[in-house]
Amino acid sequence: MYLEHYGLAALPFTLTPDTHYFYELTPHAEALEVLVAALDGGEGIIKVIGEVGTGKTLLCRKMMNQLAPQYVGLFLPNPYVSAHEIRHAIATCLKIKIDSEVNQASLTQAIERSLMRLNEQGKKLVVFIDEAQALPDETLEAIRLFTNIETEKDKLIQVVLFGQPELDMRLRQSKLRQLQQRVVFSYQLRPLTFAEAKLYIQHRLKMSGYQGEPLFNAKTVKLIWRASRGIPRLLNILCHKALIVSYGKGDPLISIASVQSAIADTDNVSHYPVWPKWLYFLIPLVLFECYVIFSWLRGAV
């Protein structure tokens, strides 16, 4: 691979949500602030919405890693869980011994007692659910009922839903309106701006051990940013492929041609026509000629 060629200690643009590469660009820093404020405020349900590849899972893992000591965190990466399975997951997290024949009512009561004991210790449970747009309706209803467990002053369980825009569409359904009303804090992750994309690429290279001059210049970053539409996952894919192509050519830096090859080889990116340089000089000349002809015609009339 290209690691030795570019003096890297690790692959900089992997798709796994590695918090080692987390960079507090504006959208992610703001999302973290919202999450911290919402948890500290004791809100029951918090929602983070973002398109595919905008960094929701990485943000979730980052938030879990920096949870204050008064929180017990439970991460559910698989949204295809039934109401029964989510109760078991919470019970396991709370170290409740589960009898194979226990019914759901008894299990819910055991969870409530355990949450009460946790509250007496000055702690509470936070459940992080990724890809929440895929949760079954019955599971969403179970989550809503769990947020009813409270004392006179505190919610005993808080839930953070990370989902794609489809989650908002689902919550607008009449049958889920009670759950929607419980969502007190919400944040919408946006794609990165050009300036943020440039910082993002530089940061990941630096965290991977790169110390030389910038591998990607302003022109190549702009090509990648436009093609990726500012979506971090697509940025990673295009940068990784551009590095492979440039390494194959033996180039010390990433060329425009290598980036164009990466874009052509990638699905779900925006493709823009690449005009030859001489055309940029010809277009103003043609426009000027048109202006002269138009002016002459007006004078002739």
Rank of each mutant, 00 (worst) to 15 (best):
S255P: 00
A195L: 15
P232W: 05
T220L: 09
T193D: 12
A195T: 05
N217F: 04
W225T: 05
Y200A: 06
G209Q: 09
I201T: 13
Q211M: 12
E213L: 13
L199D: 12
R190P: 06
G212E: 04
K206P: 09
A227S: 13
T193N: 09
G230S: 14
W225V: 00
P252D: 07
F185I: 00
R229K: 14
A227D: 13
C239S: 02
Q188D: 14
L223N: 14
A257V: 11
S186A: 10
I201P: 02
A242W: 01
V184I: 05
A227I: 01
L235E: 06
L189Q: 01
I201H: 01
Q188A: 07
A257F: 07
Y210H: 15
L223R: 15
L234V: 08
G209D: 05
L199A: 15
G250F: 06
A227N: 08
G250R: 01
V245S: 04
R204F: 04
N236P: 04
I231S: 07
Y247R: 00
G209M: 07
V184C: 06
L199R: 15
A195F: 15
Y210E: 13
Q202K: 12
G248K: 02
L192G: 07
S228M: 10
I254M: 02
W225C: 02
G250N: 05
A218C: 04
D251L: 04
K241G: 00
L215E: 04
Y247W: 07
W225A: 05
Y247G: 03
G250A: 13
A242C: 02
I237V: 12
A218Q: 14
K222L: 15
W225E: 11
L234Y: 02
A195E: 15
P191Q: 13
T193G: 13
I256P: 03
A197L: 09
S186L: 03
Y187F: 14
V183Y: 03
L234I: 08
R204A: 08
L205F: 06
N236V: 00
S255H: 00
L238G: 01
K249N: 14
L243Y: 00
S228V: 07
S255V: 01
L189V: 02
P214Y: 08
R229V: 11
S255C: 00
L223W: 10
R233P: 03
